[in-house]
Simulated scan of single mutants.
Amino acid sequence: MATKRTKTILDLFDKNYTTKLFCSLDYEAPWQLLFATILSAQCTDERVNIVTRDLFRKYSTVEAFAQADLEEMELAIKSTGFYHNKAKNIIASAKIILDKYNGKIPMALEELTALPGVGRKTANVIRGNIYHIPSIVVDTHVKRISYKLEFTKEKEPVKIEFDLMKAIPREHWILYNIQIIRFGREICTARSPKCEICFLNELCKARENK
């Protein structure tokens, strides 16, 4: 159950940021979001969107990805980093999606995380954006800021995810992901947090401990 302090923080996020659900990765089909999210590991969403603009034209179906030449795929996604593993995992996942799920992206967390290159973070992005299942996505911003706000004392993403599921109302899970990412990019940056303009000044324990 959310505490009074948690509710106040969430209300301030709602007041200062959007309460509409959206995804910063560009996609039209569920499988495109899956592959884009795999590419987003250790890469900015902006860079991924640039890469997928051409990638999804060249490989316009799951079948095309499943039949893709590995070296050509690596070349196409090279600028996203870790392209050897990403290309291999995307092609392998495409084959499984075709063979096991008839070209559809599975909904269950266990089925998603069984796909090559898909961890809980990627799976929760799919569950939240495609199937509208309330999910917590623990990226670098969510991990860092949730710790600052004392929603968790953990450092491991899975443990942080479960702490946040307890601390934050279920109906706010997906929205929390969206708001924290914007907050982390604009105000509570890793290197130089703009504490002087932060709307959470009076509630932030990290600021008190400076």
Rank of each mutant, 00 (worst) to 15 (best):
Met107Phe: 00
Ile160Arg: 13
Val138Ser: 06
Ile126His: 08
Thr19Gly: 00
Val125Met: 11
Lys148Thr: 00
Met73Thr: 06
Glu46Met: 04
Asn209Leu: 15
Leu112Gly: 06
Ala114Met: 08
Ala66Thr: 05
Tyr59Asp: 04
Lys155Leu: 13
Asn209Val: 14
Thr80Ile: 10
Pro157Gln: 12
Arg144Thr: 09
Ile77Lys: 11
Arg127Trp: 08
Phe162Glu: 15
Phe22Asp: 14
Gln42Ala: 10
Asn16Gly: 02
Cys198Val: 10
His132Ser: 14
Ile38Pro: 02
Leu115Lys: 05
Ile130Val: 09
Lys4Tyr: 07
Thr19Asp: 03
Thr52Trp: 05
Glu110Ala: 11
Met73Arg: 04
Val158Ile: 12
Ala66His: 01
Ile9Val: 10
Ala66Pro: 03
Asn85Trp: 06
Ile91Phe: 04
Glu186Asn: 08
Trp31Phe: 14
Phe35Asp: 07
Ala123Thr: 13
Gly103Asn: 06
Pro30Tyr: 04
Ser192Trp: 02
Ala41Phe: 06
Val138Gln: 08
Asp14Asn: 14
Ile9Met: 12
Ile9His: 05
Lys95Ser: 08
Asn201Arg: 11
Thr3Asp: 03
Tyr27Cys: 05
Ser24Arg: 12
His172Tyr: 13
Val118Asp: 04
Phe35Arg: 03
Ala64Ile: 00
Leu75Lys: 14
Cys204His: 02
Glu111Ala: 14
Leu98Lys: 09
Leu10Phe: 04
Lys143Gly: 00
His132Lys: 15
Ile126Arg: 07
Trp173Phe: 13
Leu12Glu: 15
Leu34Trp: 07
Thr37Ile: 13
Leu33Ala: 08
Leu203Asn: 07
Ile187Glu: 00
Ile105Lys: 00
Lys15Ser: 05
Leu34Met: 11
Gly103Val: 04
Asn124His: 15
Leu70Ile: 11
Ile178Arg: 07
Val125Gln: 09
Ala64Trp: 01
Phe13Asn: 01
Glu71Trp: 00
Leu200Pro: 06
Glu110Val: 12
Asp45Thr: 07
Asn49Val: 03
Glu156Val: 10
Glu202Cys: 03
Lys88Leu: 09
Lys95Ala: 14
Tyr17Gly: 09
Asn209Tyr: 08
Lys86Gly: 12
Met1Asn: 05
Glu156Ala: 15
Ala92Ile: 15
Arg185Leu: 14
Ser40Lys: 13
Ile50Arg: 15
